[in-house]
Amino acid sequence: MVVSGEKPTLIRKVVRDGKEVLVRHDGRLVDQMRPIRIEVGVLSNADGSALVEYGGTRVIAAVYGPKEAMPKYMSLPDRAILRCRYHMAPFSTAERKTPALTRREVELSKVLREALEPVVLTELFPRAMIDVFVEVIQSDGGTRTAAITAASLALADAGVPLKDLVAGVAVGKVDGVLVLDLDEIEDNYAEADMPVAMAPSLNQVVLLQMNGVLTLEEFHAALQLARKGILEIYRLQKEALRRKYAEVKVEG
């Protein structure tokens, strides 16, 4: 992820269908996400799993549990505890990443867990433990938001009762323009990068970070843009779950 040399032009004005529009370095419009692919139940050993791709970003989430908390002192009498790990594979980045957990991954594991806690009905499983592990297989920006999208699907696939799914996407300011779903190049040069995740039906924000500088107006616009992307991802998430479970129903 070494950035060197001149900053490339990331936003261009072009004429499309007789209209002047802003186009990003990969041809997307400012409010356009990369192609999203979602597959549920990709790991046979896990109780629940999901593979999520946002363009070149590819993550796999697995859920094990609810199961007995081990060691036992690590349990709560009135609800389950969540154990969460966000991890990037050494080969997922341009330059090899150390397989050991970095400070960034420690922080993101916490951020991810705290984004899932509001939607998991942990009070149904006192003294239990639910493991949520996310592996970033390939990284091209937006890995934490793809991770949360995948993690909530893996929980749903495991049959863990949820108040809602969680969908995440990043918004950012690139070349002074607000854009949706930044890829790695955009992220590297962004003036601001704001990952957001929501439980859309509850209309609640469960993950919010911002790295950069935004005015109040820009922030409001960015949050709305994120919400737009999140609603689209939410639709794809539900579609992916139906694809797996509705089909079984028809065959049976």
Binding site: V111, E114, A115, E117, P118, M194, A199, L202, N203, Q204, V205, V206, L207, L208, Q209, M210, N211, G212, V213, L214, T215, L216, F219, H220, L223, R227
Partner: peptide, 27 residues
């Protein structure tokens, strides 16, 4: 920042916030 811009955000803890609450918090 000293000029009233937002220079960083981080949601922490196991709960969630509505969009209205976030607006109010930032103000």
């Amino acid at each position: 920042s000293e000029d009233g811009r937002i220079a960083g955000l981080q949601k922490m803890g196991t709960g969630a916030l509505t969009l209205a609450e976030i607006d109010k918090a930032i103000n």
